[in-house]
């Protein structure tokens, strides 16, 4: 793996245990949207750009475009560049989420990493003429999307050792 950080967050010591919490920005995806013109006006085009300095593979993600219109049906698209008829999104008002469809989970085991990510809701085009939206996700790298959800995790204190998820950890310095 490219990322050596499995999880990070905030800790608090209690009587006999440690309580863990995610950092406040755990779910915060930094993005930018560039509006422009492209092709014919009867379609609306989208391009989603994920960070490239990473082991990231676009094939592992499904993009969910949420048009706010009378059709209002979430479109699930398995590629980062796509077009939809503008009749489905006449006021160019949309949300975007994505799903990681390849988490590291063994058969019969649970999953501590998130699989669904809300990028934004209810974006309204600034330019009424724009029909091409390039959406760049800046911090959505492997460390971000594979991070374990630590909210409410409890680590037991047993003498000088810690006990977490059935494993023991020994102090080394």
């Amino acid at each position: 793996p490219m990322c050596d950080t499995i999880a990070s967050g905030i800790w608090n010591q209690r009587a006999g245990f440690i309580e863990l919490h995610n950092k406040p920005d755990f779910n915060k995806i930094n993005y930018s949207i560039v509006e422009s013109l492209r092709g014919t006006k009867d379609s609306v085009y989208f391009r989603i750009i994920l960070p490239k300095d990473d082991a990231l593979d676009y094939k592992n993600f499904v993009f969910n475009l949420i048009p706010y219109s009378k059709y209002d049906q979430v479109l699930k698209i398995n590629k980062p560049e796509f077009a939809i008829p503008n009749v489905r999104i006449p006021r160019i008002n949309f949300g975007l989420s994505l799903q990681n469809i390849e988490p590291n989970v063994d058969f019969g085991k649970g999953n501590f990493q998130r699989t669904n990510f809300m990028i934004f809701e209810n974006y309204q085009a600034k330019d009424n003429n724009a029909n091409f939206f390039t959406i760049t996700l800046n911090n959505f790298n492997q460390c971000f999307y594979e991070a374990m959800d630590m909210e409410g995790q409890i680590i037991g204190i047993e003498g000088k050792k810690l006990v977490w998820r059935g494993n023991r950890y020994e102090k080394i310095n």
Partner: peptide, 28 residues
């Protein structure tokens, strides 16, 4: 105190508790 580095018994993971109350779990 709890602050410091802890290694999983099979050696594959590190837990780090910093004095500023941040923690990290790292692949070793």
């Amino acid at each position: 105190g709890i602050e410091g580095k802890y290694q999983k018994e099979n050696g594959k993971e590190l837990l780090i508790f910093n004095a500023d109350k941040t923690f990290y779990c790292l692949r070793n």
